[in-house]
């Protein structure tokens, strides 16, 4: 039995910024470090975590049957094929949303805490009931955002709610960073986003076409192609979660050797 389980909400406010991809890859990365990890799909309306993990055909029971006491927790948990330390608790039927309450989420998470080192909760988009239910069961949170005005604005709303509900620590993951655009100052910089949101940065994830390839296959990047830029970023985030001191990737350095000195000069703050 795990005693000091960490229960982490992965949320963003805005949809499509990369919550589920981060959940899947963090789950794999933590499992690879030998940590027993459960990923809980709390997006009952539009579930997708099963698909990204390639486990969609192996679901028998879901969180719904566990809550209705129609099956035991271990019957509903789907173990990952290659990473046996990782298990998915699938989201139930969307009709669950009619009756699901924060206490139900707390019950599920309490059960998971007895068996796992980490519980990662993949939160639905929005700030309504689905988010509030998932937040009620969480201790800490990772806010995922993109360097875009709408994503940052929505992240700010979510951070406000996390703060009022005493969730901590709340850390930031800046996803889909395009080094070249950032270097040309046509994309909000890392500093811009961390200043505006006033959160510590857990990590950034570089834009990477391989992410789409990996979702096509249902094999998270961190499972095989550990040399892809995004996979490295996910692995670094998992290590930092475990307290390792891994320096951040400098996106301007990544943006190509030759122009990078000039771009850095142009970014110099004058006042």
């Amino acid at each position: 039995m795990a005693t000091d389980t960490r229960v982490i909400l992965i949320c963003s406010g805005k949809g499509g910024v990369g919550k589920t991809t981060l959940t899947a890859n963090l789950g794999i990365s933590l499992a690879r470090q030998g940590l027993t990890t459960a990923v809980l799909d709390a997006d009952f309306g539009l579930r997708n975590l099963d698909l990204l993990l390639g486990l969609e055909n192996r679901i028998v029971y879901t969180a719904q049957e566990v809550l209705e006491e129609e099956c035991r927790l271990d019957q509903a948990l789907v173990k990952h094929k290659q990473e046996s330390n990782l298990s998915l608790l699938p989201a139930g039927n969307p009709r669950m949303l009619d009756w699901l309450k924060p206490d139900d989420m707390k019950r599920i998470v309490k059960m998971l805490k007895e068996q796992f080192n980490y519980v990662l909760i993949d939160c639905p988009a929005g700030v309504e009931d689905g988010f509030k239910n998932a937040m009620a069961a969480s201790q800490e949170a990772i806010v995922v955002t993109n360097p875009e005005v709408s994503a940052v604005r929505d992240a700010d709303r979510v951070i406000g709610l996390l703060n009022t509900n005493a969730i901590k620590p709340v850390q930031l993951v800046l996803n889909r960073v395009r080094p070249k655009m950032m270097a040309n100052q046509e994309m909000l910089s890392i500093e811009d986003v961390t200043d505006i949101l006033a959160l510590p940065l857990l990590g950034l994830v570089l834009e990477d076409e391989q992410v789409i390839v990996s979702t096509n296959r249902g094999e998270p990047l961190t499972l095989n192609s550990v040399n892809s830029p995004a996979a490295k970023c996910y692995l670094n985030i998992a290590k930092r979660l475990q307290g390792e001191d891994i320096p951040l990737i400098d996106p301007i350095e990544e943006s190509s050797g030759f122009g990078s000195k000039f771009r850095r000069l142009m970014q110099t703050k004058i006042f």
Binding site: E148, V149, D156, G160
Partner: peptide
């Protein structure tokens, strides 16, 4: 460059949101 425009617009809209 559009990043500074984004920054300014965000700061304004967030002050009101908050």
């Amino acid at each position: 460059a559009s990043a500074s425009t984004a920054r300014e617009r965000l700061q304004l809209v967030l002050a009101h949101d908050r």
